[in-house]
């Protein structure tokens, strides 16, 4: 440790090195290939969901109920005054809109602070069920794309 490679090399290091490279070349190629395939597979899967990161409310209505286990995202704005929390639970219900269509959604769990900001767009992750309700598992708040100074 701490030594530069060159100093630790024996006089015939060049030959040794070349021998080493040939002996391990196949192993190395296989290792790189496996790594590339694994990362490629992961990237492909991730990209599949990333390229259509979310549907609009109109689109999800057109697509209709999603099958069990299928995860989709829907984006829209919260309609003012539709947010209701079931007494003493973390269950909440609200309506999202994309300007033309609306969708009823329910969410179990914590609601991020910026959820209620009038400039925020909300992305829900979950399932669009048979009874036309979007069951949200995760909420992602898409922040306003402008940064403005607070007036205070």
């Amino acid at each position: 440790m701490g030594k530069t490679d060159a100093l630790e090399q024996k006089p015939d290091f060049r030959e040794q090195e070349i021998g080493f490279i040939y002996a391990h070349r196949i192993k190395l190629i296989i290792a790189i290939l496996v790594l590339v395939l694994a990362v490629g597979y992961l990237a492909f899967n991730a990209w599949d969901s990333a390229k259509v990161y979310y549907y609009t409310v109109s689109e999800i209505k057109e697509i209709g109920p999603t099958s069990e286990g299928q995860f989709v995202r829907v984006s829209g704005k919260l309609i003012d005054g539709t947010f209701e929390r079931v007494e003493n639970t973390t269950l909440a219900s609200f309506i999202l809109t994309d300007g033309t269509e609306t969708v009823q959604a329910i969410h179990q769990g914590i609601i991020p602070d910026l959820f209620f900001n009038e400039h925020s767009e909300i992305i829900l992750e979950g399932r669009y069920t048979q009874d036309k309700v979007f069951q949200s598992k995760n909420i992602i708040v898409k922040c306003p794309s402008k940064y403005v100074a607070s007036s205070s």
Binding site: S49, A50, I110, P112, L114, N138, I140, V141
Partner: peptide, 11 residues
């Protein structure tokens, strides 16, 4: 704090 998640698979 801003989006509500640590990571999401967005583009």
């Amino acid at each position: 704090p801003a989006w509500g998640v640590w990571w999401t698979w967005e583009p």
